Computed example of a mutant assay.
Amino acid sequence: MFTELARLDLRLRRRSMIGYAVGMAVYTFVVVALYPTFKDDAGLNEFTQGNSTMAALFGASGDLTSSAGWLNANLYANFVPLLVLLAAVGYGAACLAGQDEDGTLGVIATLPLTRRRIVAQKFGALCLTGMPVAVLTAVFVALGRGFELTVDLGHLTGITIGVLLLGIGFGALAMLIGALTGSRGLALGISSAVAAASYLISSLAPVVDWIRPARYASLFYYAVGDGQLENGLRLSSAVILLVVALALFTATVLAFDRLDVH
């Protein structure tokens, strides 16, 4: 029973995972195919310069006619993290608290598995929930070379890893809140609110001076908000994202040991 729970959970969520991935792939193809039409449009940069704060709210900043700027504004600063978070946070809130509420977690707890092994398998499944979206998006972006998009493949790989770690971090937060409270609604609501605040801080930091110092408290900043497409994912940023995810996983193990499973 080393991986059975993880495989079962992933099988139950396969439709949503496939749906998110296919939808994101179609959208990515449209974004990539439209780039030659807009790459010489100076009006895009005039918009961001004249409405910098409003543009930043939607992840649009810098040179939108460059390959990296175009992809950031239309994919990696907003939609790709959003879908990865929908998959990861949704699963994180459901895998413990949700199953406790519907009575299936009690059955799982009777299996010849320690509670720590149960959490470990579910964390393993969590690590895979956002992968189809992130990887398929990266594949279609890489094919963008046929549409005049020139993105360093190493940097593309880095931001893909950053997005995945971002999803794992917030998914692990949802797992922890679920293990502490036994409430799927609280797990989903609190982790989503924290993710939204993290997004706003990272997005507005380049244009709002008093928010800028807070960017170091935002997981979005370490994953997608620090010029990852232009400069690559910093090793220090990847380590921070990984350490946060593992710390939340460890806390979830301890909390689940104390959860009164129904």
Rank of each mutant, 00 (worst) to 15 (best):
T181C: 11
L128A: 15
Q228K: 09
M131T: 15
A217T: 11
L166G: 01
P213Q: 13
F140S: 05
S192K: 03
A142H: 10
L143G: 06
R258I: 08
Q228P: 09
A214Q: 05
I118Y: 05
R258F: 09
V151H: 06
I177W: 03
I118E: 01
F123I: 03
R212E: 12
A205D: 07
V139N: 04
L173T: 04
F170R: 01
A179D: 06
H155A: 14
G144D: 11
R116K: 12
I240H: 01
R212A: 13
R184F: 14
I168D: 00
L128V: 15
M175N: 06
I211C: 01
V139E: 04
T129F: 08
L173P: 00
A223I: 07
L235Q: 12
D226E: 12
V151G: 02
G124P: 00
F140G: 03
T129P: 00
R212M: 03
A138Q: 03
V261Y: 11
L186E: 09
S202L: 06
Y222W: 13
S202R: 02
T157A: 15
V194T: 09
T181S: 15
T160F: 08
A179N: 13
L156V: 12
H262F: 08
F249P: 00
L242P: 08
Y216M: 04
G182V: 07
Y216L: 05
T160P: 08
L259C: 12
D209R: 13
L136A: 14
S198L: 06
I161F: 11
F249G: 05
Y199F: 14
A245P: 09
S236K: 09
L173M: 13
F256H: 04
E230W: 06
A223R: 00
Y199T: 04
L165P: 02
V244N: 08
V244W: 00
S236M: 11
R184V: 09
S203P: 00
K122D: 01
V243M: 11
G225T: 03
A138Y: 02
T150A: 14
L186I: 10
G232T: 12
R117V: 06
T250S: 13
V208N: 01
I168R: 01
H262E: 14
T160H: 06
G227L: 08
S191Y: 09
A138L: 07
L153K: 07
L143Y: 07
S218R: 02
R215D: 00
A120R: 09
A214S: 09
L156A: 10
R184N: 07
F147W: 12
F220P: 03
V141C: 09
Y222N: 00
V253M: 12
S237P: 10
V119H: 10
M175W: 10
A217L: 15
A187H: 02
R234G: 14
G167E: 01
G154V: 11
T150S: 11
L219Q: 01
S203Y: 12
L128D: 10
L200S: 08
V261W: 14
V244D: 05
L126G: 04
L165M: 13
A196K: 07
E230C: 04
L136I: 15
T250K: 10
G154N: 10
G144N: 08
R212W: 02
S237H: 15
A179P: 10
W210G: 01
L204H: 08
L200K: 02
